[in-house]
Structures are given as C-alpha cells and as structure tokens.
C-alpha cells in the first residue's frame, strides 16, 4: 500500500512524515511528494497544512494541476484522504484568514477566527485539549472519548451540514475538531504531535 503525504511547500511537515513512518514501520510505503502521477496512483493521501488558510491555498494552486489531481482522487475516485489542521480547513468553501480565500469546497462551510470573547480566550489555541466524539468513525477506533489531542490554531471550520462532525473540543465554544464525509477525513488537532493516542489515529487511517 502507498500512502502519499502531499508536499506542496507550505509549512513544516517533518513531524507528519516522521509520525507516519513510525506507524508504517516499513510495511506501508510512505511517499512525500507533489508529483501528480504518484498522488494519482497512491491508495491514500494525507493533506497537511500549516500557516494561514490563504498561504496554504496559494501553495496548492502554485503547483500546476495539483488541485485537479486532488479533486480526482478524493471526489471522483473517492479514495481516502486525511486533512490535518489547515489541511482540514481547506475542505471548506471559503476561509477568512488574511483575506477572503476560496477553499477546495469539498465540505460546505467556512473557516472563521475563533471568537476569543474579548480576550478571555488566548489565541492561538495552543496545547492539549480533550475531544468530544459525537459520531462513531473508523479513524477513532480504540480512541476513548475525551482523549487529549494537541492543538495549534486560531481559526475554526464551521461546516454547514452538522452531520459531518465527528468530534468537537471546548475552547470558547464547541469547536469542530474532526470531520468525516464519505472518504474524506480531517482533524483540526495534530495527531502527529498527540503522542501514542495520535499515532493510533494515524494507524486507523492507514488501516482504512
């Protein structure tokens, strides 16, 4: 099996690579590339994302044919894809970080700044927070409800259809921290930085 981590030159993805390689233990091939043919032929794709919504979308668009290839992979061919952090946020129709920016439009909704309630909540939301699993999912197999995950973000994904929500976390309000729509999965938190429990989620995704 081939799992491809999309390297679209936005932010630091070494932790994502290290964690997938740790879980794969050589049994599953982990590719790190933006090569369109390699993405097309892989079994699963991971879309990481660090920095701003706009910078990530711009970086995707900078690689000729990448968005089309991802659309073909996830929407036409319905193969499993995992978005992490801004990778998840880009599923939305639109994001408002820096400026209004169009997302991939895979899951209807928008990405807005977390309401910090006039400074009552510090941003970024950095650190370990518990997740409240609201729907069963294969990627949460062997994950106890209220497990701690590591978060770093200031913006949140607000999907139109609440049925896509897998889990929320409590920070200022109930923030959507994981979604699933058919073959598309996403986590706002960083499984690659969430210790053994995070690696379990990565393993669950690889095993899908």
């Amino acid at each position: 099996m081939n799992v491809t981590i999309v390297d679209y030159k936005s932010g630091n993805i070494s932790s994502v690579i290290n964690s997938f390689k740790e879980v794969a233990k050589g049994k599953v091939n982990i590719e790190v590339t933006s090569d369109l043919n390699k993405i097309k032929s892989s079994d699963k794709v991971v879309l990481p994302g660090q920095g701003s919504f706009k910078s990530c979308v711009d970086a995707l668009n900078n690689i000729n044919g990448l968005v089309d290839t991802l659309n073909e992979f996830a929407i036409n061919n319905k193969k499993p894809l995992l978005g992490i952090c801004v990778g998840l946020q880009m599923f939305a129709d639109i994001g408002y970080e820096e400026t209004e920016t169009k997302g991939l439009g895979w899951i209807s909704g928008k990405v807005l700044k977390i309401n910090n309630q006039n400074g009552k909540f510090k941003l970024p939301h950095i650190g370990w927070n518990q997740i409240n699993i609201v729907r069963k999912s294969k990627i949460f197999q062997n994950i106890e409800n209220y497990s701690h995950m590591y978060f770093v973000h200031s913006y949140e994904f607000i999907p139109e259809d609440k049925k896509v929500i897998l889990a929320t976390t409590d920070y200022s309000s109930n923030i959507v921290c994981s979604v699933e729509k058919e073959n598309i999965f996403g986590t706002q938190f960083h499984p690659e930085k969430s210790d053994k429990i995070g690696l379990q989620i990565i393993e669950n995704f690889i095993k899908l």
């Binding site: 660090q50 910078s55 973000h153």
Partner: peptide
C-alpha cells in the same frame, strides 16, 4: 518574516 513564512504557531 518567520511568522509570515512558517505561521505564528511555530
């Protein structure tokens, strides 16, 4: 520059 380039989170 670095927060623009890599994101404030790091």
């Amino acid at each position: 520059e670095s927060s623009k380039k890599f994101g404030s989170q790091c």
